[in-house]
Design a protein around this nucleic acid. Sequence first.
DNA 1: CTGAAAGCGCTTACAG
DNA 2: CTGAAAGCGCTTACAG
Lengths: 330, 330
Amino acid sequence: VSDSTIYDIAKACGVSIATVSRVLNKNARVHTATRQKVLSTAEQMGYSPKVWARNMAHGRSNMFTVIVPVISNYFFMEILAGMQDRIENTGFDLNIYNVRNGAHFGDAVEARIRRGLADGFVLISAHLGQEDLNGLKKLGFPVVLVDDYNPLFDSVSCDNAEGAFSATKYLIEKGGKSVGIISAHQLSVPARERINGYKAAIQSAGRLINPGLVYVTDSREKDGFTEKTGFEGAMHLLKNNPDLDGLFVTSDVQGIGALKAMREFGRTVPMVCFDDIEMARYFGLTTMHQPLYEMGAMAIDLLIRKSEEASDEKKHTVFSPRLVVRDPIF
Amino acid sequence: VSDSTIYDIAKACGVSIATVSRVLNKNARVHTATRQKVLSTAEQMGYSPKVWARNMAHGRSNMFTVIVPVISNYFFMEILAGMQDRIENTGFDLNIYNVRNGAHFGDAVEARIRRGLADGFVLISAHLGQEDLNGLKKLGFPVVLVDDYNPLFDSVSCDNAEGAFSATKYLIEKGGKSVGIISAHQLSVPARERINGYKAAIQSAGRLINPGLVYVTDSREKDGFTEKTGFEGAMHLLKNNPDLDGLFVTSDVQGIGALKAMREFGRTVPMVCFDDIEMARYFGLTTMHQPLYEMGAMAIDLLIRKSEEASDEKKHTVFSPRLVVRDPIF
DNA sequence: CTGAAAGCGCTTACAG
DNA sequence: CTGAAAGCGCTTACAG
């Protein structure tokens, strides 16, 4: 166990702990000779500051907490990777907290904040209700929303409606007369926005929405963003629409299921998915690319900025998803 | 910002902070009336203890740190998911720390421990050298190794050699006369063990190792556990071995690459992979299943046990990978 | 440039 | 059952 404290160093160097603290914190001016001595004995004693003592004295924790719905999901993972990389060497630490599906997101977040564990929060795909957000706001901590938007907080997101619009438009331009959609659960905000984008594209092509071409899962597992709902949706649409000739799918995971369904059903229709997680590449999925990694990195930047200069200005970054065309592997 | 401290509560209740602390910590005996009063005013003041103050007083952080090589990897993610779920409601917190590929694992870990941020560590696939491990041991913190083994610490792992043996044996029994192997980089301990298992199975079938059937990548990216090395390996083996009729691949990710190679090359040979990450199911990969989620959960159990009763006994859990047979999607 | 001292919020023997 | 007090390791005005 590493025991050395600034008291040990102070004694060894014949100075006060205040001086030791000063050299360790770089900022203040200290006699060069003293500084050298302190530094070297600290080094040789294998000293490193106890973070909680610092927290205690400072009243802050230098830790950010990221709250994600489910960690075991490629979508979140790629965002997390961006955050992990960006936080490095900033002096801040990242604490990942995973809210169980059942748990009330708002409560979990508040409990977390109250405990004083973190002095900044990133909420990924939280989509809290306005009351929860107001409550959060009152606590006064820096918060950044990712894959979500609310005027109260900084946010980083993609334009889901626009992405869905582009995807659908692409399918139409490729000659699609009967372009269908497979969507995740209505409860998901991004899913709803993507449905809207799809409808807008159909209508702006001068057509009517054909309800028979719209499949919205009612599976609640992972809000319907699963391979299973994609499979079921595609099966359903293929069976009921012999003329189906285009498919917009609200996520890559679902797209994989849809791909299987097409194969099993024996009919392939052009498909555009959403997200562009790593797996999309493996399957050769054509999809709307979200810069997940960059979004994560940007969230950290915003948080650091916010926790250093307490400005009240809000920054909202909205990316435009980009179409990535690939050849499906089967 | 939530400001209330035990001083506020004490004042409001007309008792000392010691008493407040006692009721808040359940353990000690306090007059019921006092207890009620304290509890209710704490509740209504929205009080919750500042963790760092507790840490400071206790000398411990109630936090575990998990150290993973790369977080953006399904293999690690599934282990992490098990840990996240298991840590819930234990009073401990999980802090995930991601060592960059270049960084020296041992140093990163030591720095982490020294800072006093955590009072327990899980190292996933660290495979540190013995000197590093000795150093760690000296620091005296509870450590659990996952996907790794060393007599100095508790560990949870799979028998890689045995798994590779079974996989290869299966391919031989299916009629494989020329069963090849595609392996990740030699630097990876599990890769080496799996190569050994493969060789043992070949030899125990009374055959000689044919070096022409052994492909070990020298790509260092993710230790060679990538789709790319699988693709290259399969291409190489297919080209040079017209009689290739079985393929053991050291991971699912590589298996996906190999699958693509077979398709592109126009020849399909029976294949068994390793890990059974979620994606394996999507691709219909036949593979050796590792109970990743359970391994994560178990690591947390071990850590909690160790940090509560400082026993010196070591627990080593070694799972036997189980063959999962699936139909490839193409 | 440097030291003595107060303070961060909580816990825990030690008395009573 | 309860209070006064010391202590956890560090930071930071305040004097000098």
